[in-house]
């Protein structure tokens, strides 16, 4: 039977240097995996023992210093974050704040949620954007939001998924346009419907193709976009860039100059002309 003292010693192990046979004056370090390798029950030689391994001692100092550093860092950062106001610091943050404010006022509006989805996407919060889009799609006044989903996927870098969605959006948009045309015809209304839905699809799909390296495909889509609305300077500049990339400098110059017809000092168009050497 083992007494209590024995159990304690066996289980925990001695915590100080032991004296072993033949080396009464030489303390041997206990078989202990703790860092407390300097502890000495006697207390008399504690200082000397502590200095047996100055490197370990230094490491202990550094470790303790790091603990203090961590605690201090947490405190300082908490203090700083508590002084921050919640005002936006960039346009993107302001757009998010504004869109969130609209959603809180109009929680059942699909347009409000769609706007928030775009704002989140611009802030690189793509999961939040898709969540907001789902709220938009479940709203009472929701119409086709496929193009919004496609735009968000494109901004998130999921370009191939975006292309599929753009194709779907194009089909839906054409159907919708045809339905509107029939409704209008019934009422004797003729002429252009005047919405930019298809422009948005062609523009987005063109950019997606560009991102995938399909220059010809991108040009084809952006040319369609320019036919939907010929005053979109961004479309003309992007077309100019793509023509230049495909080696057609004349078409590129024409596209940049078309953009400058609408905005005479448009910097990107001027930069494009400069790059072509045709200022």
């Amino acid at each position: 039977m083992t007494d209590e003292r024995d159990i304690t010693e066996q289980d925990t192990g001695p915590i100080g240097p032991e004296t072993v046979e033949g080396s009464a004056e030489e303390p041997v370090w206990a078989d202990d995996d703790s860092t407390d390798v300097w502890a000495d029950d006697s207390g008399e030689d504690e200082g000397a023992e502590r200095e047996r391994d100055p490197i370990a001692h230094a490491m202990l100092v550094v470790a303790l210093g790091l603990v203090v550093t961590l605690v201090a860092t947490t405190g300082v950062l908490y203090f700083y974050l508590s002084t921050l106001n919640k005002a936006p610091r960039t346009t993107v943050e302001r757009d998010v704040a504004a869109a969130e404010a609209v959603v809180s006022e109009e929680p059942t509006s699909a347009a409000a949620w769609a706007r928030l989805a775009y704002a989140y996407a611009e802030a690189d919060r793509y999961e939040d954007a898709l969540d907001a889009l789902e709220r938009a799609e479940s709203a009472d006044d929701a119409e086709s939001l496929v193009v919004v989903r496609a735009d968000i996927l494109r901004l998130a870098g999921r370009t191939r998924e975006a292309l599929t969605e753009y194709d779907r959006a194009l089909t839906e948009m054409k159907k919708l346009r045809e339905r509107i045309r029939i409704e209008r015809a019934k009422k004797g209304i003729t002429g252009d419907i005047g919405d930019d839905g298809l422009l948005q699809v062609y523009w987005g799909r063109g950019l997606a193709k560009r991102d995938l390296g399909d220059v010809e495909g991108a040009i084809a889509d952006l040319e369609l976009a320019s036919k939907e609305n010929s005053r979109q300077v961004d479309v003309w500049v992007e077309l100019g860039d793509l023509y230049a990339k495909s080696g057609d400098a004349d078409k590129a110059e024409a596209a940049y100059r078309t953009a400058l017809m609408f905005v005479p000092d448009f910097g990107e168009a001027l930069a494009g002309l400069r790059a072509l050497g045709r200022e």
């Binding site: 100055p54 490197i55 001692h57 230094a58 490491m59 100092v61 550094v62 303790l64 210093g65 790091l66 203090v68 550093t69 201090a72 860092t73």
Partner: peptide, 13 residues
């Protein structure tokens, strides 16, 4: 603080 901890360690060595 981190530099201080390292300096203390070196000082100890």
């Amino acid at each position: 603080l981190m530099l201080l901890a390292i300096a203390l360690g070196l000082w100890s060595v």
